[in-house]
Amino acid sequence: MSKLAATIDAYWNKGLAFLRFAAHALRTQLTTLPPRDAFVSQFVDAGWGSLGLLTMLTIFAGLNLSVQSYGSFERFGGQDLIGMFAGIGGVRELFPVMAAVVCGARIGANLAASLANMRISEQIDAFEVMAVDPMRFLVAPRLWAATLALPLLCGYADFIGLGASYLGAVYQLDLDPGSFLTQVQDQVRMVDVFAGMFKGLLMGWMVAIIACFHGYTVKASDGAEGVGISTNLAIVHGAVLCIVVNLLLSWVMYG
């Protein structure tokens, strides 16, 4: 029982530490400009670096939407509804969420690993001793990069995913191109795309703050093992949070 209490206590303290870290980081992020070079390199890393993975995944997901829905709708002669299905299911949920979770995991892992490595090799201490605020120079650029890259990736995923659905429907399943496009036009409004991007914005920040927390607070004495553990925690906690927050947001926006 006392072991349980100790565990709960440890989680409680960790949670408090996280909230303090997040508040400090957010304050720094909003009140100071991050150094430009650091931001640009982080942004390129997060955004450009995720494009290959995201393109491949959304092409398969888009094709899959068409193929799967064709199988179901065909039974009652509704194969023409594929455009609607890909439009609603894809643009409102699948593509942006996939982008957020997959790219979020990739970005979060990178952020946590890089900060943890800087912690164990005393680079963060070196910043401190040089009278440089590591929150401003290391954490804020990472937060901004992820927060701005992820919505763009979500928007990008919509186009690639929908394009792949279209190509699958028209060239693989021989559906009428005009009907697909009409349905997409009828069902998907630009605001749905923006809603997906907004989700990406929120999730980008959350994934990044969790990853930065795990990386930044790793104990220097844990060494390389600490880097691995913090990276792992960043991915797991970030992905769980993405799914939960997505559900909540969908409720609020479409429920």
């Binding site: 390199s41 800087m118 090799s121 680079q123 201490d125 070196a126 001793v129 009278a131």
Partner: peptide
Amino acid sequence: LFAIRRRFGMLFQDGALFDD
């Protein structure tokens, strides 16, 4: 603290050079 630290230079045991 930062004002005091600006009067210091520090060589860390393993260098602590910035990797990037």
